[in-house]
Amino acid sequence: MNSANRTRAFIAVGLLPALLLFVTFVILPILWSAYYGFYDWKGIGKATYIGFDNYAEVIQDPVFWKSLQNNMLIVAASVFGQVPIALVLALLLMKGSRLHTFIRSAVFMPMVLSSVVVGIIWGYIYHPEIGVLNFVLDSIGLGSWKQQWLSDPDVSMYSIMVPIIWNYIGPYLIMFIAALNNIGSDMDDAAKIDGAEGSRKLFSVTLPLIWDTIKVAVVLCISGSLKAFDLIYVMTGGGPAHSTELLASYMYNNTFSIYRYGYGSAVSTTIIIVSLLLVAGSQYLMKRGDRL
């Protein structure tokens, strides 16, 4: 009893520093920003309480809905792009041969680059004048496929998905490889004895065993995509004419370009609510998948 208490006390003390930092730098700012959302405030000067006016404006602003829609596209591209690609790569690259290690590092590489660098690189690839992509299309005789990749609102969101997927496959790949390596060799033996091989083994043994990791990856993917900002900021700034606006860039522009701090705070609170709903929803869906 005594020793159990002591362990608990130790755990509490051990958690305390991280908890304190988390509360100070994450929880408190969220509450503060929700509070500022009730004010009409320019950053300096007087703040006037205006109740739910900011929130009402958020819901009525077509640009907000456009950003939400774009953000959902990014979430979908990430969940159905990053996670499956990372999973397939992980299954293929599980073994530690030299070639596999090399490809793994190559896939992880973009993650090490600063996203500003990634944004600039892809900005140049898509560039209307000096872009590599249009140049390559021209030189292999596919000139008719040339596009204004970043400034044509019909294609720009899809152009942006590519670097986003490319950039963030790395960490999921590493997570999946770690999970796959955690499956004990006894499982392999058992599967072999039961005659499970190939896709049968994949769907009945391997995937169920790493299902928890996949769930974590999906949650990280959703929350990461809702925070997406840096690549968009560098590549298009949310433009032209809001056509690539995301929730985070919409919030940033309102707060720091137009100096509507109160309204920007209301937007960020709304983003948190949307994220929580999405994460909860995805958890619920995957739980049902569990039971089946």
């Binding site: 900005g123 560039h127 004048e129 970043l150 400034s151 032209p240």
Partner: peptide
Amino acid sequence: FPAGFNAMDNTQMEQY
């Protein structure tokens, strides 16, 4: 205006 002018910045336009 040149094609893709909404994807070029001020400095690039001056160089152009």
